[in-house]
């Protein structure tokens, strides 16, 4: 069971949060020029990393705000918590 640290509310149980999946997926800025392959990649294809996973979480049963987490998908260790818009932190796997 995870203990996640909401950047605004502090450490809370995983039950208060909802996971939004892989983060840092940027919507293409030129949608009119994209072909099917590029759209498919953007909409469906995922890294699904074994190891460090950069993902989005929302404090659904708390402040309701989105934030980012770097977490190991093998040990479940929370490696970093950072705000939406921040760059990926440097974390050791």
């Amino acid at each position: 069971m995870l203990l996640l640290e909401c950047p605004w509310c502090g450490p809370r149980s995983e039950e208060e949060f909802s996971c939004g999946g892989e983060g840092h997926i940027v919507r293409p800025l030129n949608p009119d020029e994209l072909d099917d392959a590029a759209w498919g990649d953007y909409v469906f294809m995922r890294r699904n990393a074994k190891g460090v996973h950069f993902e989005r979480w929302r404090h659904a049963h708390g402040c309701g705000r989105w934030f980012n987490v770097a977490r190991s998908t093998v040990s479940h260790e929370i490696l970093a918590v950072y705000r939406v818009g921040d760059d990926k932190p440097k974390v050791a796997p």
């Binding site: 069971m1 995870l2 995983e14 039950e15 909802s18 996971c19 999946g21 892989e22 699904n48 990393a49 074994k50 996973h53 993902e55 977490r71 998908t73 093998v74 040990s75 479940h76």
Partner: peptide, 13 residues
């Protein structure tokens, strides 16, 4: 479990 994982164990909730 709602989050990605490769650990063959789940959470209690």
């Amino acid at each position: 479990d709602p989050y990605n994982s490769y650990a063959q164990r789940g959470s209690l909730p």
